[in-house]
Design a protein around this nucleic acid. Structure first.
Lengths: 199, 199
DNA sequence: CTTAACCTACCTTCTGGTAGGATGGTCGTC
DNA sequence: GACGACCATCCTACCAGAAGGTAGGTTAAG
């Protein structure tokens, strides 16, 4: 039926993993050409410039993330379970090294040297992720399913920051386990008092 | 007396701020030459290769950080105050944009594409920072000055990750305030129960 | 006399990007 | 069904500039 693996998809997938490894300036058209098995010039046919390529890539990433959040809303109703699922998703990605870092988190670290169009997409992902987390936390607090120590917004920002920092530490230590060492207690702390384990 | 601003110091300082902006592949010898007001080739006199330059830079950064931790141990005895000071230091750096990101945190995000020698220095910083934080938290918990929800080691990793993530978010949002929005509650939560404010 | 610091000039390789041609499939039209 | 026209895909060949780096010379201070 439909060809599931078009060349332009291959290019995007390859560029994504190269960005996850080293950021915007960490890869070149030649690198992609080698992996995909195509000539450098052919990439320009699909993506006239590097900015086009990366902007498209981040836009698609953002779309996938939003679909993921929407599905999570549909399939899991408990806020704590939603957060657990989100963390678990990244835990798995890091453990099997399939995508050991969030594309937008990595690009955000280089925001000052990013082309403006790419930067805008990256910021947009942060806003949308933060908004979703805020809504999850707010709902959880309202229904007594989560225990917050500050505003939903602040907790959401803290949650996101901690997850991003945990990715960084996992990479720095070269040890996927560090991700759950950090995120485990983070989720634990948000659980309602009735489920709380205190040392 | 001693010339406080040698050329090689200027080069290192310039390279540091360029790395903080865009990482290892985000700057070139030409960029440094422009800022320092020297020719490209002259940089090679001080640092034969880019790897030499960055390795030296990170080693020095690491040294400064360790001196900072040691001084903090001498000048501030209360563990919570030590953590507050540490967070406050970064808050100030981010607010005045003098050094809006930890050099090692930024480089760690690009570890897979970093020259091995640089990577080793970066990892070493993570270990030393984590070790110091662990000792602070352990001591604080032992004397009832801090309230931990898991092991000192896990709390230390979580603290470090959250601080790094907060830097990232501050950059992504282009808003220094986000750093304290995230780190404020983090410190609050570690404070002993007697100082706890609950909503 | 030596040496550190800096220079000009140059090299090689990589960078993102362009020009123009070959190939092959999909149209509408006769 | 045959015929072009068209278009997407990919190619070779090329370009200008930037990358990190080298060779060898000048200058000035100890």
């Amino acid at each position: 039926m439909s060809n599931l693996s078009t060349t332009s998809d291959d290019i995007l997938a390859c560029a994504r993993s190269l960005i996850v490894a080293g950021g915007y300036n960490g890869f070149s058209y030649a690198d992609i050409a080698d992996v995909v098995g195509i000539r450098k010039a052919s990439i320009h046919h699909h993506f006239p410039s590097k900015v086009d390529l990366v902007r498209t890539l981040v836009a698609r990433y953002r779309e996938e993330a939003e679909v993921g959040m929407a599905n999570l809303e549909l399939q899991v109703s408990d806020p704590l379970e939603q957060l657990r699922f989100y963390a678990g998703y990244w835990e798995a990605c890091i453990a099997d090294a399939s995508a050991p870092f969030c594309v937008c988190a990595l690009l955000a670290s280089q925001l000052p040297v990013l082309p403006e169009e790419v930067g805008l997409e990256v910021r947009a992902h942060f806003r949308s992720l933060s908004a979703w987390l805020t809504s999850v936390l707010e709902r959880g607090a309202r229904h007594g399913q989560l225990q917050l120590m500050s505003t939903p917004r602040a907790e959401a920002e803290a949650f996101m920051a901690t997850v991003h920092g945990a990715m960084l530490s996992a990479r720095a230590y070269g040890d996927p386990k560090i991700f759950s060492i950090v995120t485990g207690p983070l989720l634990q702390r948000l659980a309602p008092a009735s489920l709380q384990i205190r040392s």
